[in-house]
Amino acid sequence: MKKLTNKLLDWLNAEDQSVFDDAMELKMQEPKEEKEETVQQRMRDRLHIKDEVYSEGESKEVKVLRIIYRILAIILCGFIAYNLLIAVSWLPRTGEFDKPVNNEVSARYIEKGLQETGAVNIVTGMILDYRAFDTFGESNVLNIATITVLILLRRNKKKLPNEIEEKENDRLLEPKNDVILQKAATFLVPAIFLFGIYVILNGHLSPGGGFSGGAIIGAGLILYVSAFGFEKTEKFFTEKTQKVISLSALLFYCLAKSYSFFTGANELESHIPLGKAGAILSSGLILPLNICVGLVVAVTMYTFYCMFRKGEF
């Protein structure tokens, strides 16, 4: 019993009692030197065991397990579907007006939307004025996605020292500059850019807005790059421009909205003219915010394509 308490005490004050037993002093074992050949043999055995243990291959019980897994998955999905359908059948009928969904919040947005935000399109007014903070988080989500994709897929130059490797890799990813695509792109890209800019600028008047307009411009950029190759775009779109554009857009968004939150929350007059409803320069801050969100989305979509395609800009 005493020995046990000693061990506990030693353990508590964390003394290393593995070597020194209190009865007698143990001499350290000198490591025996092994022949090279036995080490090789041991490594080979270890590999053999590892393959043997983990190569389930097509053994009997693995197949059975796989079938059981599939059946259980299907049963689970059917069970979930059945429950959801029961829930849906008890929901109020779609398309009715007196549902709990159409409560006073949506009534407030519809009735006072135009006066307070100045945006003719109530949805855009809601996104960029009533819930601007949420859309700010949303643009940050896009920025974070860009950063993660950059981390994951960017090829660092140091690992490819020789030129041939670089050239060979590029040949695979470089567009083959076929004439048909280039001719089509010369007509399409300006039209796509124009449409994208139109959708962004008219976000508060017609359906659309920052997100869809930015995606259209991003798609236009992608078409341009896949038609004319990366040398053309490197002139105006490099790593630095991506950083500068997205950060300045987010910064402007943050400053603009914190100003209007500050004035709005304390009932101060925010001196931002809401302008005549229906004019392009009307609804106060919504137009510049739309442009910022559009820039962030366009840059994000283009960065995704570059990173997936080539690993650098």
Binding site: T124, I216, I222
Partner: peptide
């Protein structure tokens, strides 16, 4: 809700499919 229509067409059908093909 045409807002969603444009966004889904430009973002959902457009960019997602491009990303799948490039992958």
């Amino acid at each position: 809700s045409p807002d969603l229509g444009i966004t889904e067409a430009a973002v959902g059908a457009g960019v997602t499919s491009i990303l799948f093909f490039v992958t």
